[in-house]
Design a protein around this nucleic acid. Structure first.
Lengths: 131, 131
DNA sequence: CTTGACCTTCCAGTTGCTGGAAGCCTTAAA
DNA sequence: TTTAAGGCTTCCAGCAACTGGAAGGTCAAG
């Protein structure tokens, strides 16, 4: 599988894929002609990276998340704690997304005229995730 | 309210807040001594930006989202469509987060030993959002 | 055997911050 | 009243994570 197909499969631009190789997030094989060739595992990693990056996880966090699946040396309690930490973070993101969605949904539902949106929506702008 | 307090209230570093001013996402007033002063609306915007950026929306997308609440000139059907588009995007992010969480939860639950994680978890690495 | 769609590397530019220097403002203690 | 700490200012440099473009090699179709 060449980089173009990997790009389609992962929804990542080829530039980004090469960049991820440069910073050692993936290490695809090379064909005899010098072309990169991606195996199923590479594609999985790329798809994972595409999702996690799109959800606001940094490259280092992605590296950590990937390591959760692959690091055999780390004590299992560490792995577990890391996973639990990340789950907490994900829960926070989930509730933030929910509140953002609620705000937008209210906006789409209520603001049907040429007049300004109802005040409660604007008041909700900063979200209610912290209380 | 000075930048330090705004920083605490919004969970954004002061550097980032000044940067957001530079790119015209906010325009706080200035006190006589030259200090920036932030009103409630500014804080709302900052908190909103902090959340939206953390969820993977770009600065331009944030600008768009903010404009949804404030642009009186745009035809309401446009606003509605934009809001609906963004809601679709948020739904996608929500399901991606859910699948990521499920994967990590399975990892934390099942992988309690020194052995490698169970294969189904690794197989799930790239998520199931597209099928 | 050439045209067009791929692929390669390299290098420069962009986005979105982030850190540090140099200096002014403010509060609180000596 | 001076002075030290901490917060504020601007400016400029650097980093993270891409992104675009040039120059050129590879390959399948016509």
């Amino acid at each position: 599988m060449n980089i173009g197909q990997a790009s389609k499969a992962s929804q990542l631009p080829t530039k980004t894929i090469r960049y991820y190789e440069e910073i050692k997030l993936i290490s695809p094989m090379r064909a005899e002609n010098g072309y990169r060739t991606y195996c199923e595992t590479d594609i999985h990693r790329l798809r994972f990276l595409q999702r996690a990056r799109g959800l606001g996880f940094s490259i280092d966090e992605c590296r950590l998340l990937l390591s959760l699946y692959e690091d055999e040396k780390r004590a299992s309690s560490d792995v577990k704690q890391l996973a639990l930490d990340k789950i907490g973070e994900i829960d926070r993101k989930l509730s933030e997304l929910e509140s953002l969605k609620a705000t937008l949904t209210a906006l789409a539902r209520d603001c049907h005229g040429d007049d300004k949106p109802a005040c409660p929506i604007i008041d909700d702008l900063a979200g209610r995730t912290n209380h």
